[in-house]
Design a protein around this nucleic acid. Sequence first.
DNA 1: CGGGCTCTTGACACAAGTCAAATCGCGTGG
DNA 2: CCACGCGATTTGACTTGTGTCAAGAGCCCG
Lengths: 243, 243
Amino acid sequence: MVVSCHSCPLRRKSVFTQMTDSEVAFMQKFKTGELEVEAGSTLMMEGSKSPQLYTVLEGMGLRYKSMAAGDRQVINIVLPGDFVGLQAGIMDEMQHSVEATTAMTLCVFDRKNLWSLFRDQPERAYDLTWLAAVEEHLLGEALAMLGHMDGLQRIARAFVRIYIRGKALGLVQQGAMPLPYKQQDLADALGLSLVHTNKTLKKLREDGVAVWRNGVLDIKSYEKLCEIAQIETDGKAVARPLI
Amino acid sequence: MVVSCHSCPLRRKSVFTQMTDSEVAFMQKFKTGELEVEAGSTLMMEGSKSPQLYTVLEGMGLRYKSMAAGDRQVINIVLPGDFVGLQAGIMDEMQHSVEATTAMTLCVFDRKNLWSLFRDQPERAYDLTWLAAVEEHLLGEALAMLGHMDGLQRIARAFVRIYIRGKALGLVQQGAMPLPYKQQDLADALGLSLVHTNKTLKKLREDGVAVWRNGVLDIKSYEKLCEIAQIETDGKAVARPLI
DNA sequence: CGGGCTCTTGACACAAGTCAAATCGCGTGG
DNA sequence: CCACGCGATTTGACTTGTGTCAAGAGCCCG
């Protein structure tokens, strides 16, 4: 059953900026269908020219770059509302891969209609640029994190960032949210070895800061976590456009 | 003396995509003036809402984020042709600072005209998004570098990247190009300590790979450098739009 | 019950950070 | 014209965070 943009459950959430009815109608035309993928599927391959672009409706995923020697750098996690494939649409090819960690439902757009969006809907073009600029900002933060923080701080910071996003999406219940990734995924995101990630998680657990187990992140002390992460406790997710 | 966009010396270089006469004419209207700043000036401050956006005509600079404890993460270097302030234009505020390392000449645009660019010049809007997407890609690469490479590899990779950009801009003469930064700048970019950066540079020097001295980067063996950096030797700069 | 993932833990090695001090280069002022 | 001072670059000695190797424990599924 295909959801109409008008009644899209994501669109109602306050994290997403509101559109006028005519704007929603345009997006509806832009949308060409829905895609369901199972856990583990690769949505986009580094170097490929995907003919399709997606907005995540449900499920979680990972963006990553493959490196020499078989290891990879996780760029960030993909949550509902995220737009996937902008690079393939704007540049020629994807510069990273995208993988579904859980089963996912995606809203599908056709890449060849992207230009009409720039021509006829400058507001949406602006939104796309906004998304790219925000992504750039987030990567800048991640870079600073890898460059200047130790393992404990990195993990704490990752948890805070994820928690803020999860909260904005309504995924958090009593301080806990689903986080169905592997320790290896986190290690690959933070530039740490699996072993060291594991030991650092243990420390956070024993210090009563946060417990991440069985795919659920449970924040025991948001204050302590933020202190370690060097982040203000009042951080909120910024409202973002939903494409 | 203000250069007209039509006779802009940068625009002639082949690294930049060509515009039609009418497109150049629009950019000319968009341009509100030129700015010359001396070495050491701060062009944009993290958190500020700059009313102006720039394209670099001459000189070199640095983008960086300030961190706790007084140190900083250099995001990347700023060379002629680079667009500065996109974040201030699209998002509300800059997320990083920009500093002039040498004296610089900048082409000035008014932020409040940015929307008219999206409305009336979809090609330019597309270009801006393209720039943001490329920036995102480069930061992704940088992230992978910090996450997975050791000091020697990082420096080698930084040199190769810089060299490719410098070559495309015609800054390279007999394998050498001006690179007027401090070792501390490079250290801050690569997430290394100054001391370790210095020792690693020494190694590159003694191994006959590259010498960086007195603000000049001299590549002694591009092959060795690329091998260390794990980059193909045939890498070229991609053509990019000049805003 | 067995095979294959994850997750845990311990022991050890090494890359890189920190601290401290010497040297070099350069502009300024006596 | 030389002495001084300050910032940048070098170098050495020591410390430590993190990676690597290896092996065991927990858990799910066929």
